[in-house]
């Protein structure tokens, strides 16, 4: 019994320690004067790796999710003769929930795991140590540009996701199932508000970007530098950031949309 308690206490303490290390890492990376001349090319490269490389999976998933939403929504709504409300149904569920959340989950799988594996391998091959010995702070050189790239990319990806998904819903709802195009757009417009829906969705997306990128970078930076350690860290990135995103989504939704 005491043994169990001891174990529990030990585990709790090491959790706190790892949260502390993660915070230390993030602050170390972000609390410095960015050097625009050196930093911008690094950021652009990471925006390419993290953002542009995720574009395809985001757009394809967005298209299909929009199409499925339209199909499912239509079959329910048509029963009440309310198929004109397909537009707002699709748009609101995408902008408020699916856009930010699904993007964050896909991002964790696509870019987050890659970030963890990359940094973990850099650690395993002593590249981080070697940077440090060359008097270059790896937090600034390696972690900071990746963090900003993730933080900037994810909201953009979420916007693209929602836009493509709405077009996909239009494709199925209007062109295939025969919802009137005019009412699809106009009822959507009357129901969706820029501030309430799009902006809140964007805020969610920024929060998720912070969470996912942070977890991914920390897991890579803190991993045990062996092939086993890296694979464990990569898995943990996907699992932890997905769970964190879903948990925070509930909290944010409760704060934003329950009035």
């Amino acid at each position: 019994m005491i043994d169990l308690l001891q174990k529990l206490g030990h585990k709790t303490l090491s959790r706190f320690a790892s949260i502390g290390r993660a915070t230390q890492m993030l602050l170390g990376a972000l609390l410095n004067v960015p050097n625009l001349r050196k930093g911008t090319p690094l950021l652009i490269k990471q925006l390419y790796m993290v953002g542009h490389q995720s574009l395809l999976i985001i757009m394809v998933s967005g298209l299909f999710i929009g199409m499925v939403l339209a199909l499912q929504g239509y079959t329910v709504l048509v029963g009440y003769g309310a198929e004109d409300s397909l537009g707002p149904l699709v748009a609101l569920s995408l902008l408020r929930e699916l856009g930010p959340v699904v993007t964050a989950l896909l991002f964790a799988g696509r870019a987050g795991s890659a970030l963890t594996a990359e940094i973990g391998l850099m650690k395993a091959t002593e590249q981080l140590s070697s940077l440090e010995m060359m008097a270059v702070d790896p937090l600034k050189r390696v972690v900071a540009p990746r963090f900003w790239a993730g933080f900037i990319s994810m909201p953009l990806l979420a916007l693209i996701f929602s836009a493509v998904a709405i077009l996909g819903a239009h494709l199925v709802g209007v062109d295939w199932l025969g919802v009137d195009s005019g009412s699809f757009w106009s009822i959507m417009q009357s129901q969706v508000s820029l501030q309430q829906d799009i902006m809140n969705g964007l805020i969610k997306s920024f929060v998720f970007a912070l969470i996912v990128t942070w977890i991914a970078l920390y897991k890579g930076y803190d991993c045990i530098p062996t092939s086993e350690g890296i694979s464990k860290a990569t898995t943990e990135t996907v699992v932890h950031s997905s769970l964190a995103v879903l948990g925070f989504d509930f909290v944010l939704t409760a704060v934003m949309f329950s009035s």
Binding site: K38, E126, V136
Partner: peptide
């Protein structure tokens, strides 16, 4: 003023040999 040659070499895998050698010069 000191430098270290790591066991694995620890070359930056995303840069060419030239850029690797140029790296400390460009940084400092």
């Amino acid at each position: 003023q000191m430098s270290m040659l790591f066991q694995s070499g620890a070359l930056f895998t995303d840069m060419s040999v030239f850029d690797n050698v140029a790296f400390p010069l460009r940084e400092h």
